[in-house]
Design a protein around this nucleic acid. Structure first.
Lengths: 340, 340
DNA sequence: AATTGGCAGTCTTTAGTAGAGAGTGCCAAG
DNA sequence: CTTGGCACTCTCTACTAAAGACTGCCAATT
């Protein structure tokens, strides 16, 4: 069984290793921290920690580095979430202070988060599964091309290009647009899909194919809305921490650029009682991210829904600071986008 | 003066160096290519090329590598534009074939381009300086927060969040929305800004502040539309080619993530008579990208405007193939988005 | 005048060796 | 349970030597 002091030793090993990227030896521990015991005693504790697989030695007779399991214990016990520095708080205010386009807000958020944590930051677009349709607009771009725009009451806008049969004159399109808005306005997405499916019946037979085409596109659009999107920033930070990876960071960057992977990862992470999730090292192996850790939490969107945001980086990261940063940014973003 | 054969030598040096990342020696040239002369003769030609600063030797007595100037000559005169392989053509069809959301089309385009070239790909959003307003929608998200949505006839959709005074009831907002649409529908962006500025006068005095607030936001939104955006993909490719950079690729990736830099770079590149631009090595030094080359061309958007797309990578890249790929993708995208 | 073979000279790369340094594990004593 | 001591292991650095790759130049050849 690992003693109280043993856990303290684990903590300083994690801290020193994260700070220096050097395996931590018993001697440097007693030098830098005041344990009041000798190096030999620390060595005994370290032997215990190694038995529990919380730390490991890269080679016989070198210092120790934390294992994934060690990081996990460290994070779980991490009670003292250091508050952000005043400079960091100011950065959040400045970056997110002024109101703007939703895209811009999320873009700024993700850049901010990557700067605060020095990691790759991710923000999921607000999901809108519970939202209602606000407005539908059909825009004729060319004789055989139409753009459909869907606006929901949660502030999401979706657009889609569509090739249509050439018989669609401007007048009919505008008539169809009016009809769509009266049929769908204020209606939930699932119900809307239903109504769209029955739409063609209400038009003259010769119009049915065109209407059906547009209705099908809109249904797709409505349902595809569950497919979420991500914005990412700070890929350069991954390069900076390249040495923390055993091989090339190429596959890691590739996995991170694959949105589907990350969305699945976000989805499968178990939040703790505070809604915060930490996934460490091998826990992400299934996603090709076995050497990275992911920190994520939810933020409130205008639909009363929760989307997620977080950072991803090498397992050797400053969990304390990064968790605090992710939390703070999520809180601020919730205030900005959420319902009051 | 460099002879005809000298230029042939330059060509094979560029080709071999790009393929192998090894300095190219006279012996390997006569081995791999049938020049019909001996290595010593090639050496004489290489001395000439070196005098003209088209190639350089990393150290005394190693093979030669092309200089920026050498690549420039290669691109201008020597690169034969090989047509894309059938597999590549198929990839374009499959990736861009089905109609979809504008965001999705551009997202797919940029991923496709990065896969075809194995470089970082960039696509600029369609600009809409010449487009007209199609629809304005005001969405009340909370008692004191409104989202404005602007749809143009070129298929661009812009949204913005806005904190308002709390006296804005739903009814008035919908009334204002109707008024906005009748005032602005079909109007060009510049004229629209004018009309918006005068909008508050047409409402009762007690409403003026609210109307003004919204009008101001819309004006900003209308004018901010000239600010273009970029999508990027394939950052992982930069890591793959890491060894082509003298220092770390960190500053390079940082510069690439900075959209403003790239938009300026795109803007300053001189297109040739085909509308194609190639910028090599030191020519990009002002942007912190002195070790990269940029290939770019325009594509037609629905507004009859031209936006740009291209790739960026180490100067040591396969210009022939990449130029062909950028061309082909731009052509395809023009067909997809442009006016018929 | 262009081309060629030969050869000395230069520089990089690789392998191998030795010594210093850091850290552990274990043991016997406190 | 803690401590000091010590042998042992492993890495890291510097240094040396040998091998390999090319060039540059020269004198001979076509």
């Amino acid at each position: 069984m690992v003693s109280e002091r043993g856990l303290d030793v684990l903590r300083v090993i994690v801290q020193d290793y994260v700070a220096s990227r050097e395996p931590v030896g018993s001697k440097s521990i007693v030098e830098r921290h005041s344990f009041g015991v000798s190096a030999a005693t620390i060595r005994n504790d370290m032997a215990l920690l190694e038995e529990e697989e919380l730390i490991a030695a890269p080679h016989t007779s070198s210092g120790r580095i934390p294992t994934d399991k060690g990081y996990r214990v460290f994070v779980n016990q991490l009670a003292d979430l250091q508050p952000l520095s005043p400079a960091q708080r100011t950065a959040i205010e400045i970056f997110l202070g002024s109101s703007a386009d939703l895209d811009q807000v999320l873009g700024r958020t993700v850049r901010l988060l990557s700067q605060l944590t020095h990691q790759v930051a991710l923000v999921q677009y607000p999901s809108l599964s519970r939202s209602r349709i606000r407005h539908v607009e059909l825009v004729r771009l060319a004789s055989d091309r139409v753009m459909t725009v869907l606006i929901t009451d949660t502030g999401r806008v979706e657009q889609r290009l569509l090739d249509v049969i050439a018989d669609l004159d401007e007048e009919f399109l505008s008539q169809l647009g009016t009809r769509l808005n009266s049929t769908l306005g204020g209606v939930g997405l699932v119900e809307a899909a239903d109504r769209l499916a029955r739409l063609a019946d209400q038009f003259p037979v010769e119009r049915a194919p065109s209407v059906d085409l547009i209705a099908t596109a809109l249904i797709e659009q409505v349902l595809a809305n569950r497919q979420d999107r991500l914005v990412m920033a700070g890929a350069a930070n991954l390069v900076r921490t390249e040495e923390d990876f055993s091989g090339s960071i190429y596959p890691v960057l590739e996995a991170i650029e694959e949105q589907v992977t990350l969305l699945r990862l976000f989805g499968e992470m178990e939040p703790d009682q505070n809604g915060f999730s930490v996934s460490i090292g091998k826990e992400n192996a299934a996603f090709g991210l076995g050497e990275t850790s992911v920190l994520a939490t939810g933020y409130a969107t205008s639909g009363g829904e929760v989307s997620r945001l977080g950072v991803i980086g090498p397992t050797r990261m400053d969990y304390s600071n990064n968790i605090a940063a992710v939390r703070a940014v999520a809180r601020y973003l919730s205030r900005l986008l959420g319902e009051d």
